[in-house]
Design a protein around this nucleic acid. Structure first.
Lengths: 349, 349
DNA sequence: GAGGTGTCGGAGAGCGCTCTCCCATCATGC
DNA sequence: GCATGATGGGAGAGCGCTCTCCGACACCTC
């Protein structure tokens, strides 16, 4: 046992590498972190020793002194204070969330930073998230709120933890966020439908307690007013396929002669198109349809859906970038960045 | 500066709590970790001190000594050695991935363990993942491979890192996995279609280099043979909407009289149904359609899709459970768990 | 009352790393 | 020739926690 030889016990440490290279721990650390000048010959020796020993730095030890983890929390924060949902499947299963995750990972991976997936749907889990962050498990947070009444943004701001939100919070909070110009998107849809020659338009909005839904509707209505159509029939949905179907049924019952529809997201547009088909309306011949998001659902529509592109991946990447800035410069002022939507013309309008 | 008072410098530590409670660091640690008996009165005093100071244990320091991080990697591992995809959006945007994430989070959250999202699509990123795990950033890994030729499972097994796979690996590897009985699923579809009275059946399979696709097809064919139909027309797709459309076109061209279709996933079934509609076939009147997965796409079909339920959330939860066992008991033998699929009857068949 | 047994709190040694000092060496300037 | 930097490496003090010892004390048993 105590024959004096360096027995292998667990993974190699800096000390082991230093011994193998015949230098001190500090020098190995300098080579690894590229800090200060180290003689090229010694650098080479250290690198060989690292390869030889198969050394990988222990992140916990490193975090302990640097107070940085190289991880950030990617939080989906949700509804009320009700009981816990055993499977937060519906939320994560939304392709929208996947696009956010993809954008965040795309930006962060080259930096060696990884997102920790968290889900906060109850009061308790919100506290858990804050505690988690305060324990230093992550350097900051990216937050996607799926309900208007979410209190987590405020908690985050109060704890002055580095954080960036997807979408403008309902009530003003001193916290950075990234959003798309929803109003401009609504206008794009209106302009396109009018330019196509549609005259009897209607719209299916999202739930009106969400700023995004309000703005898409307002942008559409305002642009239509400019085009000389001050009144636009409107049915409210909740961004689901079924709600799109139901809204379309209502609109069609009251306005059988309509020739154009703007739905506040692609999935509702998809539902609307199915209902139009059932009622013998051809798209885009009889009724033109424009969606919002440019999600995978737009391509699963027949005909393929003309839609307002929501640059979710780019926005997510920007959130990641902004968060890193906040982490690196704790005094960086709160900022927001608004992306411009674009129209993707396919066949439905 | 040195007036002897305990100046606030950074977050409170165990030491601070100990001082406030008038006990030693060790005692506070014992109270927090619930180890050994501590006098109730002292426990109470410690708890008050914790509340007073707003103490939260530093995870890095804790990990350094326990060698456990309370985090696991959730890895989506992909295609070849090609160039990096700037946005791994397509992958994460797949609702299937969301269901896995939901199931994993559902099981792990009560345990205070959180998944770190990782994406490995290149040789380089695979090494990065292994390095990350070896640095002790995560205690183990849950791996979802999206291509048959993925080498990460083998790397994981070779490094003997705790890991669990979603779906049986193409080649046998000493690593635990969770899967569904694909063959039995194919049989469920066959039995249902035959019981419904369908006689001229066809099937749309997934890419046949995937074991899952092979097995679904084989299970369907074998069951059909038992029912006296030794030959089943078959078109290969790749699990996408468009490939389902294309496959259906081919099948319809060659077998215009078919009266039932089994598609190896819901999204292809959705594409097939659109094509059937375009060709004037009513579902289920003229042609009955059965899908596989019971994903959100099944509910977005009109009529709603009868499908074989793939219990992804339960399987993901089981992966998480199994991984925790492997982490806690490093010598635990490699195991697999196969879930039984069930048939969800809706209106399409 | 001596010795044994059990309970409970404190001391202190690390875990593996970073980073500030500090010192040795060598080129430079007047 | 000697002070003056610049350069490059080592020593060692922590970061905040866990956990093994160890000691103090109370309670038994014979």
């Amino acid at each position: 046992m105590n024959d004096g030889l360096p027995h292998v016990s667990g993974p190699p440490t800096l000390e082991d590498v230093a011994r193998a290279a015949g230098v001190s721990r500090a020098t190995v650390s300098r080579v690894i972190n590229g800090i200060r000048n180290v003689d090229p010959a010694i650098q080479e020796r250290v690198r060989q020793a690292i390869a030889l020993t198969g050394y990988a730095p222990n992140q916990a030890a490193r975090s302990l002194v640097t107070r940085r983890t190289g991880a950030i929390a990617l939080i989906v924060s949700g509804a009320g204070s009700g009981e816990e949902n055993p499977f937060p499947g519906q939320v994560f299963a939304d392709p929208f969330f996947g696009r956010v995750a993809g954008g965040v990972v795309g930006h962060l991976r080259p930096l060696g930073v990884h997102p920790i997936l968290m889900f906060a749907d109850t009061l308790e889990s919100r506290d858990q998230v804050i505690g988690y962050l305060r324990q230093g498990n992550a350097d900051g947070a990216i937050l996607v709120s799926i309900s208007a009444e979410d209190t987590l943004p405020k908690l985050l701001a109060d704890a002055s933890l580095p954080a960036v939100l997807f979408a403008r919070p309902v009530r003003p909070i001193p916290i950075s966020y990234v959003d798309v110009a929803h109003r401009a998107g609504g206008k794009l849809a209106a302009d396109h439908l009018v330019a196509r020659g549609c005259r009897r338009l209607a719209t299916i909005s999202g739930p009106l307690d969400l700023p995004a839904a309000q703005d898409r509707l307002a942008g559409f209505q305002e642009a239509m007013a400019v085009h000389g159509h001050p009144y636009i029939p409107h049915a409210e949905g909740n961004f689901t396929f079924a709600s799109g179907e139901a809204a379309m049924e209502r609109l069609l019952a009251e306005h059988p002669d309509l020739d154009g529809v703007f739905a506040a997201n692609d999935v509702m547009a998809q539902g609307a198109m199915v209902v139009l088909g059932q009622h013998g309306r051809r798209v885009p011949g009889d009724v033109a349809v424009v969606g919002f998001d440019d999600s995978s659902a737009a391509l699963a529509c027949r005909p393929p859906l003309t839609t307002v592109r929501h640059p979710v991946e780019d926005m997510a990447a920007e959130m990641a970038r902004l968060l890193m800035v906040h982490i690196e410069q704790p005094d960086h002022p709160v900022t927001s960045k608004i992306f411009e939507p674009t129209l993707v013309v396919r066949e439905s309008a």
